[in-house]
Structure formats: C-alpha cells, structure tokens
Amino acid sequence: MKIGIDKIGFAMPKYFLDIADLAKARNINANKYVKGLLQLEMSIAPITQDIVTLGATAASEFLTEEDKKNIDMIIIGTESGIDQSKSASIFIHSLLGLSPFTRAIEVKEACYGGTAAIAIAKNHVVSNPEASVLVITSDLAKYGIGATGESTQGAGSCAMLIKKDPSILILNDDNVYQTRDIMDFWRPNYSDFPHVDGHFSTKQYLDCLETTWNEYSKKFNKSLDNFEAICFHLPFPKIGLKGLNTIVPKQENENLKDKLNENFHTSIIYNQKVGNIYTGSLYLNLLSLLENSKSLSSGDNILMYSYGSGAVCEIFSVTLVDGFEKRLRSDRMADFDARVKLSIEEYEKMFFEKIELDENGNSSFISDDDSLFSLEKIENHMRIYKKNNF
C-alpha cells in the first residue's frame, strides 16, 4: 500500500520584519544575517495568533467536507505548546469542525515532532487503509530582544493530509533515525525563552546528518545519485547549505552538485521569508521546492533530513506521484507580498507582548485581527478562539 502526503497547506501571520532592519537596530552588519544566515525576513505573530490559529488556517487551505468525514486522527507536532495538559490539536479539531470520532494528540521532541507525527500517521493508515490523518506542524520561534538567536525567529504552520494513494508524494519505507542525549537547545518549563548553545548545536546537526546519512546509504544501498533534491530542517537557511556540502563528496560529479545546489536554493525561498518555524521548517522547505522547482517530475525521489535538538534526527525519502503539481499552488508569493512590514518598534511590541490576566484569569484583546482564526479572549484561564466569517 502506498501512503503519503495527499494535500499540503501553509499559514503565516500577516506581519513580517525585514532582517536588514533588525541588523541595523542591533548595530550589526546586515551581511551577517543576509549572507551569513541566508535569511531575508521573519514572520511576526501578534498576541491573537498562536499554534492553534496558524495550524487551523494551514489546514483550511485544502480541507474539503469529504476530507473532514474521512479524518479520524489529528496530530500536532510543536514545541510551542499552549497548555501543559490539553493538546492544541483538540482546539484545532473544534475550529475545523472535524468528526467527534477522531483521535487528537500532540507530539513533542523539539523540531523533530512533525516528522514523528507523520510516522504515527503513516502507521495508522497501514492499520486503517480508508482513514485519513491530519498532521499539523505549528510553532512560534522566540528568543528575546537582543538574544543571539533573535535573527532566526519566525512563526508559521504547515498542515498535511496523510492517506493511501496520495496525490502529491509517497512516504517510502526507508527511515533511519538516531538519538543523542545532548543539551544544544532546550527550554525549561519556567523559562519564557530557550537556552541555546549555537555552535554546539550546528556541529551536532551536521554530525547527525553525516552519520545518519552514512547509515542510510549503507542500509539501503543508495547514493546521492538516487535523488533529485535534498530537503533539510532549517533553523536558518545557511545551515542547510552546510549540510549539503557535508554529504556531497568533493569528488562528486559536477552535474549532480549543480542539480542538488539549484534545487536547494529553490527550496529555501519560503524559509528565507518566514524564518524558523521549528517543527514546520523541513516541510516548508519541501513545499517551497515543490511549488517553485522547474525541474521536478513524477517518479523523482527527494531525500529528507529532520533534526530536533536534544537530539533526535531522521533521514527518509519521498517519491513524487503523477500529477503532483495539480495539488500545489503557483501563486503563493502573492501571500508574502500582501504582508504588512513592521518597524523595529512595532516588532518588539507585537512579538513579545504577553497576555495579562486579571485576578479571575480573564483577558481580552483590543485587536483588529481579521485572520480566518484568532484567539478572542481568555475566560477563567480558558482560551477562547473564534472563526471569522468572510
């Protein structure tokens, strides 16, 4: 049975910050961000947008009433949880109007959570061939004003429908994964922002890639010649380029190098404008490749590298199916062009605003948020969401 991604959608807040403006405000040469990170912009979420609203919006991009009937599981991969107990997928389930006879769970392992969710979804469809699983990757990456990671922040969500006989790509049975007990990035429950050892994390990312790729190629007798492109988890786009150079041998033929390099730069177009979205970064990378590449065709294989600090990583491959391009958008750049650019002052006020509760656990927001879904208020410590009707 062939199982894979049948539909895919993406959502981001309507606000963004130019990375060059951030560099200027922090007295840093803009090239450190633009060339050093290959980052151009970052999406900024107001207080009324979170992993629930972004996740529901991403799924709404493609869900039909027939899809909703067939979905019997919804999984969210995130490291930006809104509750220590209740899964964000339950809120999304309600906003989307899915069947009550649906399993809803949340998966956490840093940026790897979305890949773990897809693995769970795939196994579910193996046991329930007529089922569809909605997988959502949704995160807000925040490091704090002036923090070393401030230039790699972002906000967004990718949603995917997993089912048999998919219309976009097949998830192949060639997964190789690795776990290491390391402290390269972590966020204790009492901390608003993560703790990061940036140089150590980059080193681990690349070493995990190299060692897992060596195991993958040995176990499945595959080489880079088997793939048209490689997609990476991208906390910032430049690390993907470092990853590409890590596993492409210097003596490799020039045609292969050129092909992989060209598709890499195609795959980072969206990430460069959004920033880091943790669990969704790999799948935004994939979406950018699929919607912007002029060289891909059905039957092509794409190598996927997922990494979550702490650390768990995985390499697997996907294969494009006939007519995959019909499930994709050709006009997504218009969404980026329609966003509102923020000044540094507006960015600092918006992105780092905190919810203020009264003595009864209530909070309301003065907002002109006209997004499809938004956080309306908090009432007796309960988050209340609304869907805007257009």
Score class of each variant (00 low, 15 high):
Asp258Glu: 15
Asp258Ala: 08
Lys259Gln: 14
Lys259Glu: 13
Lys259Asn: 13
Lys259Val: 10
Asn261Glu: 15
Asn261Tyr: 14
Asn261Thr: 15
Glu262Val: 04
Glu262Gly: 11
Asn263Ser: 04
Phe264Met: 05
Phe264Val: 02
His265Ala: 13
His265Asp: 13
Thr266His: 13
Thr266Ser: 13
Ser267Thr: 09
Ser267His: 04
Ile268Asn: 12
Ile268Trp: 03
Ile269Gln: 01
Ile269Pro: 12
Tyr270Ile: 01
Tyr270Asn: 09
Tyr270Glu: 04
Gln272Ala: 07
Gln272Leu: 13
Lys273Phe: 08
Lys273Pro: 09
Lys273Thr: 06
Lys273Asp: 13
Val274Arg: 05
Gly275Leu: 10
Ile277Glu: 05
Ile277Leu: 11
Ile277Lys: 13
Tyr278Glu: 10
Tyr278Val: 11
Thr279Arg: 06
Thr279Lys: 07
Gly280Thr: 01
Gly280Ser: 14
Gly280Pro: 06
Ser281Gln: 02
Ser281Lys: 06
Ser281Leu: 08
Leu282Gly: 02
Leu282Trp: 03
Leu282Arg: 04
Leu282Lys: 01
Leu282His: 00
Tyr283Val: 06
Tyr283Ile: 03
Leu284Phe: 12
Leu284Cys: 01
Asn285Gln: 07
Leu286Ala: 09
Leu286Thr: 12
Leu286Arg: 11
Leu286Gly: 00
Leu287Arg: 08
Leu287Thr: 07
Leu287Asn: 10
Leu287Trp: 04
Ser288His: 00
Ser288Asp: 04
Leu289Tyr: 06
Leu290Lys: 08
Leu290Gly: 04
Glu291Thr: 13
Glu291Arg: 03
Asn292Phe: 06
Asn292Cys: 00
Asn292Leu: 00
Asn292Thr: 02
Ser293Lys: 03
Ser293Ile: 11
Lys294Asn: 14
Lys294Thr: 12
Lys294Ile: 05
Ser295Gln: 10
Ser295Phe: 01
Ser295Arg: 03
Leu296Val: 01
Leu296Tyr: 12
Ser297Met: 08
Ser297Val: 11
